[in-house]
Design a protein around this nucleic acid. Sequence first.
DNA 1: CCTCCAGTAGATAGATCGCTCTAGCTGGCG
DNA 2: CGCCAGCTAGAGCGATCTATCTACTGGAGG
Lengths: 204, 204
Amino acid sequence: MATATRERIVQTSADLFRRQGFASTGVKQIVAEASAPFGSLYHFFPGGKEQLGAEVIRWSGALYGQLIDAFFIPGADVVSATHAFFAGAAQTLRETDYADACPIATVALEVSSTSEPMRQACAEVFTSWVDAATERLVESGLPRKRSRELAISMLASLEGAFVLARATRSTEPVEIAGAACTASVRDAVAARRAKGAAAHRRKR
Amino acid sequence: MATATRERIVQTSADLFRRQGFASTGVKQIVAEASAPFGSLYHFFPGGKEQLGAEVIRWSGALYGQLIDAFFIPGADVVSATHAFFAGAAQTLRETDYADACPIATVALEVSSTSEPMRQACAEVFTSWVDAATERLVESGLPRKRSRELAISMLASLEGAFVLARATRSTEPVEIAGAACTASVRDAVAARRAKGAAAHRRKR
DNA sequence: CCTCCAGTAGATAGATCGCTCTAGCTGGCG
DNA sequence: CGCCAGCTAGAGCGATCTATCTACTGGAGG
């Protein structure tokens, strides 16, 4: 396995960055926790810690992006999917002692004013998440513009709820934000149905 | 002025922490930027960087908490206040090149798994903000439970929108989150009015 | 067989980290 | 005036940071 070490470095870094952030995680700590030789880190990432950071952001982003597709299955009810999504996040928080929230939010805030390549990586990930969620909502019959708005405000609510939850060590913010988002999605679906029904009535 | 230096240290730290976070800000950088003697930092903050951090969190929290009272003036319309609050946040972001968002969110995410005293300071600040917003909504006639839910989901939306906005260098998330929150408040007010009208009708 | 090179391994450089320490300065009070 | 806190001022400590450097290993290909 040629790239096993490289992968282990990325995974371990992702874990540490999520918990303590980018700046407070040393490269020594990474290689130690990953049981990787120190030299290998700079062999695989000649750009140093910054290159590793950018790659970790993209890797975590892709991994967590799959969660969106896992919850918002085409054909299934988007309202209950939204509720389940937030409920799942709350459960994960509780199970991990409020450590596993968003894998990139901490790093995003840290670097968005100091490292342009890492900031861009974060922006790409967030955009990809918004796009994915938007598509799932469009597929469920909502207008594209409304879907995008919902996707953005859902992601914002979740990210913000994570901030509050980790600081207060309570899942209440996640649950309340989840309820609000679920209600918004329900309203959007109902509005769409009403409009569809009106159009249907008009047709005949 | 006996405590001018101390205050300058706190203000400068608040500025730096907000931009680059806690870990990436060195004490040397703080005293340099604050034009303060190095010894003074440890004179005023014998507990070192952690004590300074906790104090900066509380100080910034109190300062920004006043914004809530500035926007949600007793007697004024809460719906337009909500809209103005988010619009103001978006404008500040634009004016400061996406640097001045939440003064403590970055630090909160960084320390909530590593420093218990600083995590508690963050928790206290967030709680105080939620409490303040809740009171303003209660005063405008909304039920307390609903007010608290609105306050929490508004704060979460704003914090998350800040994360997205800083990373993508766009105020769109703030504007969309603001629109969603404004709609929620409007709905809550409308529901209250309907209920009040029903009670009124029932009465006579 | 030997060559070659990706990957392993870690010593070490050079800068910076948070922090301690001592000495000097200054303004108000006895 | 002399004295004593409160504060200023910065040299310097040990630790730790990122990154570079050289040396070694093991297996695939000529």
